[in-house]
Design a protein around this nucleic acid. Structure first.
Lengths: 343, 343
DNA sequence: ACTCTTTACCAATACGTATCGAGAGCGAAG
DNA sequence: CTTCGCTCTCGATACGTATTGGTAAAGAGT
């Protein structure tokens, strides 16, 4: 196997009989193209003959911009993050950026490693989504105060641009369950950080009280974000309540955890939605292709990803613009996992 | 918000009162360290004071190596690819490499975009996993013949190093089903390319015939790799056969498709495993946290990811070494989705 | 006092590109 | 013939780093 032979713009220039700077002019094809058609053709022919591709690393060094942005998700099993990432990539690509995706496994150490992408100048800016440990916020704040472009997704801080939670989903959930006659509503709230990511739950509980539906702590299970956490929490909730006082509906933090909640309910011999209704959030593809299909809150994940990418790219263009906080509108998608309250 | 102020090794040198080259010597801390303890301390102090981080792009340009490898998966919803990616990242990180993950959405155009990471010198090497369109193979071959480091995962070609399918899984599946008395075995074989990725099916069928179990084309549904494909294929299979001639067991290409197969079966009122047994491949976490938990073939995905990363990094170190094809050993994990044949 | 070695550092250069200022050529206007 | 302006191209430089070859200082040995 032959060694890799690097072809540079100098080689192209030599073959075309022009200066390297002329090759550069041809490649970057400025609107005010100061290069004659014949020369351009000669250069393009040489490029084709040699199979030349610009060295993006060198270009980044010279341009002081890599045209890569970093996107960190806390885990990769939860499809919600795929939808977000797809939105980010869609908008970024449109703007000529590539996306360097990282998974931090809810681990502050890996989150700091992700931050290094920025300090090491591998990327032009960073998008942090959810799952960012509180211990990492000071690091982010420091970088922000140095003017580093970082934006957030799913949490809010005054020092960075963010796309926060979609609004209106919780109200739709409570209203839907109330209409179906549910008076005992339970929660499986599996997030990495109950303080930072607890909004959904507190909003739901407030709405529930406002609707005159009693809140009972025995029906609220706060747990971690994994499938196993959701499974266990469900088992515990079932074990702690008799059939008569058991919730008739469960609100689950997201589709990802909901699937394991469903598995735990099925393992306990409960039938959805006859014995218990399930509502969750995110409306991922998973919610459609399971049994029963899940009633879920659609928070426009793809659009939120695109929005946060826009915030970052705008921030890159204008470092001194005022901080923005955007959000999308949520909408409840009713499927077969919710039904009339059983008793 | 202040502008980002770039700190370079020259700034460090100035503050420490040394030459830039000395700063470089300190950073790269060679074993034969020719720099005195006092000077080293002064430089380190200056680095700390300025908050200096080496510019990895410039370093890559100089070193002719980015220490980044690219990993392409055809989709991100299927957790199998997460396990592979985790293995890749684990080994790569151990060797000082970062991993640039891409999702190509079964799309040859995106696969070619992925190849550009290499031609543009953004990465040192590439890992292609499954789902690579046949139309892209010539491009890969061309790059390989130029000496570019590319390795494959899940398919085999003589011009690149690959980690191929785990062996032994199909035999375990057929044996398991035969022991449970199944004589009517169906297949939901959802892959992007039946030619390239059809091994699993052909192996199963051959083993099945060898075991004296009849093969019936009506029970074999070849379809695409999405959840929807699996769902539809299952519906079609059910519609095309009466209850008496319906398969008593279904072998599904992977856990990902299996979940939608299960949903389709449940929607049709069939009970697993009483009415029909399910076996699938990959043994992802998903197989454990669904209902019923899936009997699945474990192909050591994580290890395969680590293996293919090793192949690539070895190839980088030694471009002229002979091509290697490695594989892992498969093992059947029996769970609740398989049971005695119903009739 | 003289080489010779060793230690500790530095100046210069190259990696591959984009850009700036300058200059060559040339036709048109004076 | 000179001057001006315009079009096209080139040389030089910088981006931030690693490495090479060299050298000054200091000591050791004769």
């Amino acid at each position: 196997m032959a060694q890799v032979k690097r072809v540079t713009s100098v080689d192209v220039a030599r073959l075309a009989g022009v200066a390297q700077s002329t090759v550069s002019l041809v490649i970057n094809n400025k609107p005010n193209s100061d290069v004659s058609p014949e020369t351009r053709a000669r250069v393009l022919a040489a490029i084709a003959e040699l199979g030349y591709h610009p060295h993006e690393g060198a270009r980044s060094l010279r341009m002081r911009a890599s045209h890569i942005i970093g996107f960190a998700a806390p885990e990769d099993a939860n499809e919600h993050y795929h939808d977000l990432a797809a939105g980010v990539e869609s908008f970024a690509r449109e703007q000529g950026y590539s996306v360097f995706r990282s998974v931090t496994h809810w681990n502050p150490h890996e989150e700091r490693t992700f931050l290094q992408l920025l300090t090491q100048q591998r990327v032009d800016g960073l998008i942090f989504s959810y799952g960012t440990e509180q211990s990492v916020f000071p690091d982010i704040a420091t970088l922000r105060h140095q003017g580093q472009p970082i934006v957030g997704l799913g949490f809010e801080h005054d020092f960075l641009d963010t796309v926060v939670e979609a609004t209106g989903g919780e109200a739709a959930v409570i209203e839907h369950l109330a209409e179906l006659g549910h008076r005992r509503i339970g929660y499986i709230y599996g997030v990495a950080d109950q303080v930072t990511l607890g909004n959904r739950l507190t909003t739901c509980l407030a709405l529930q009280e406002a609707a005159g539906i009693p809140v009972d702590e025995r029906w609220i299970k706060r747990c971690g974000p994994t499938r196993e956490d959701g499974y266990r929490a469900t088992q515990e909730l079932l074990a702690a309540t008799t059939a008569q006082e058991r919730p008739t509906a469960l609100v689950v933090v997201n589709d990802f955890v909901a699937t394991s909640v469903c598995a735990a309910l099925a393992a306990a011999g409960l039938h959805i939605p006859d014995d218990i209704s399930i509502v969750s959030f995110d409306n991922t593809a998973q919610a459609t292709y399971c049994w029963p299909p899940l009633t879920s809150v659609d928070g426009q994940s793809f659009q939120r990803g695109a929005l946060v990418a826009r915030l970052l790219i705008e921030r890159l263009a204008n470092p001194d613009a005022p901080i923005q906080h955007l959000h999308t509108q949520a909408r409840l998608v009713v499927r077969a996992s919710t039904g009339q309250a059983c008793s």
